[in-house]
Each structure stands twice: as structure tokens, then as C-alpha cells.
Amino acid sequence: MGVQAIFDHAVTLTLAILCLSFLVTVYRIIKGPTLPDRILGLDMLVAIAIGFIAVIGIKTGYTLYIDVAIALGLVGFLATVAFARFVLSRGKTEDDILTEVRQAATDARKAAKAKAKADARAATKTRPASGKTGAATGKGSQP
């Protein structure tokens, strides 16, 4: 019976180690600076999940779990391939997107400033003629 006790302890220890590695990988997925890092983390999660399924299959004695593991491996592979296609078709890195967004924000600010200036000029021009209403429209059109 000693062997069986050792085996039970080994299964428990394996589950604990797998949980630890699962948590570490999830931390990388949450923190991961770029999208490919997160995809790699998800790929790794699939491998760890297959490990979990194998351990649970041994623990419960249902060998049907191995079909689940194979199917999960297939789905994980297809998911990674699809994500790689997505990275390729998006065609830019996080840095590119950041610079683009910053550029767009600067442009928008500049445009708004120019528009405000033009509106103000128009308002000062129209104020003597139409009085209060011209100033009100000038204020209203300001972003």
C-alpha cells in the first residue's frame, strides 16, 4: 500500500505545481506588454490545461479525458494560428498604435485651437453688427 500512498501524494503535488505555473502564466498574460506576449501566454495555458486534464484523468480513472485533451490541443493550435493571422493583418505594434493615437490627439488639439481662433475672430467681427446673438453662437461652437 506504500506505493499507492506515494502515488497519491505525487498526484496532489503535481496539481499544486500546475496551479502555481497556471498563476504565473496568467500574471504574464495580464502584464504582458504586447499582444504576441499574451498570445504566447494563452498557448502556454493550453499546454498547462492539457496537463491538468491528464492528471485528473489519472486521479479519477476516466480515460475518456484523453480525448478531451486531444481536442483541446487542436483548438489551442487553431486559436494560436488565428491570433498570429490577426497580428499579421493588424500590421502594427502597440508602439505604432500609441504614436498614431498621440499624433491624432495633437492634430485634433491643433485643429480645435485653430477653429477656436477662427471662431473668435468671426465673433469679434460680427459682434458690432448683430450684438449679443453673434457672441452666443461663437461661444456655442467652441469645442
Binding site: T14, I17, L18, L20, S21, M44, I48
Partner: peptide, 11 residues
Amino acid sequence: SLFALVASVGL
């Protein structure tokens, strides 16, 4: 399981 742990620590 130790190899899986090593892989995630490497990640």
C-alpha cells in the same frame, strides 16, 4: 509538471 512550471517561470 516541473517542466511546465519552468516554462511559465521562463515566460
